[in-house]
Write a protein that binds this DNA or RNA. Structure first.
Lengths: 251, 251
DNA sequence: TGTTCTGATTGATGTAGGTCAACAAGGCTG
DNA sequence: CAGCCTTGTTGACCTACATCAATCAGAACA
């Protein structure tokens, strides 16, 4: 009895909490999507540990050996690469249920930093074991491939944003994207807190911080949204959507 | 005998030539990388057909059902997506040994056009069969994942290029990238023909055609390269590389 | 052999967004 | 509480690239 309690104690206080996909409320968004009960229990054995990460801490850094991919359990992350001339450049933001770290598969070395934007938890999925298990469970394999493909499509969408959209449109697209992702997680699609700084937004969108600030102000003046620092309220989603279809100035 | 000859005839004239990875001089660049002889012969049964594609024709179009990924056997391709406002935007160029079509995995619908820039041949790899086979052959599975990861890394590199580099630097980076890929295929890294138009280059690089033209002229004036229409000769690769590390004007 | 068409180059001018600088609002620390 | 530091906003100005327009070289064709 006492031993059991101690173990429980350890499980709860240790860096690694025991994770269980089968019990997770994110399972419809995350890796286990489309798996049966039985298959899920196999995955439970794979997903070793949950890790707590304090705000500002990193899960992995550029140059770290790749060994696992990660799912956000709670919290918010950014990934950033290093430009040739040594600046950091945000390449993505990850929220609950989203998976990151797949950049490391090709070279077995990570080429971005993954940093928590708030106190967060991630589920660690050792990639070798994930591959082994996906050889047993076709639907898991298929879903893994879909997740990687989704990342490809997402990045290509970002390429399009960066090469065709004007500053204000980029910001609108960014907010609409967040809105959809919050909605998919049961949060309000019209009112939310930005976890990232203007600096990080501007880096992600390929703009300067002042330009992002001006874009927010301009969208506010046009009554499309309310901004108070990091608190956002979308007032006219149809109009914001319409912005995205704009004949893109410098087409 | 006669029958055999007829079969041979058909095999050679039909749209689908029989492909054999084990015989292919691209096998060290392409899907079979790292497979043993025995494993290769399994892959041979998978890679159903080679397809000839005339210049300007497409392998798949936006909205087409996804069923396979493709490897370039000979020739040159571009992939392009459609912007919100209906313009085409080049998202990549593929040369011999490179694999494309993975964008379709996530939704089972392609979201780009794949178009031959010259008369080309592709090897068709039915994705369901590829998945099935990769459940038998761990090294094949691993390599498939690496290929997808490499695409993610490539796209993220492109995001960085688009959001941090100035026009001239983008063109230089583009040329250096082509140079490396030609070199890896045994072609000259300093002298090559561009298969794509200035229009396509500018779309890919998120610039206007005039800007690309001026960048070429300027690099020529600086004696970094020679340009004659689509014929390129790189005169000073170290200087071109140095350009990429430039403190990136609007950092 | 001229005619037209397409793709590329070059010049002149306009503008979106970068740069620089001032300032305001919190949040921390002594 | 003052002083400081970080983050965001706003204004004035500047520049890299887009835009518009003219010209040219080949390729396609009559």
């Amino acid at each position: 009895m006492r031993e059991n309690n101690e173990n429980l104690e350890i499980t709860f206080t240790n860096a690694g909490l025991q994770a269980a996909c089968s019990q997770c409320n994110l399972r419809e968004l995350c890796l286990p999507l489309g798996l049966s009960e039985g298959e899920l229990s196999h995955v439970d054995t794979l997903i070793g540990k949950r890790h707590k990460v304090a705000r500002g801490e990193s899960i992995f850094r550029i140059g770290d050996h790749f060994g696992a991919i990660y799912a956000v359990k709670t919290g918010f992350f950014k990934t950033e690469m290093l430009t040739e001339d040594g600046h950091h450049q945000v390449t993505g933001f990850q929220m609950a249920g989203e998976i990151f770290g797949m950049d490391g598969i090709s070279t077995e070395v990570h080429n971005c930093d993954a940093i928590a934007l708030e106190d967060s938890e991630v589920c660690l999925m050792p990639f070798g074991e994930l591959e082994a298990l996906s050889m047993q469970i076709p639907s898991l394999q298929r879903h893994l491939h879909k997740i990687m493909s989704r990342e490809i499509v997402r990045d290509q969408g970002m390429m399009m944003l960066l090469s065709t959209m004007r500053a204000e449109t980029r910001v609108a697209a960014f907010l609409m994207n967040l809105s959809q992702r919050f909605a998919a997680r049961g949060y309000s699609p019209v009112e939310f807190h930005l976890r990232m700084s203007r600096e990080e937004i501007s880096s992600y969108l390929g703009l300067k911080i002042e330009t992002v600030s001006r874009a927010f102000s301009h969208l506010r003046d046009a009554s499309l949204l309310e901004v108070d620092k990091k608190h956002i309220r979308l007032l006219d989603i149809p109009a914001l959507k319409a912005l995205l279809n704009t004949p893109a100035c410098h087409s």
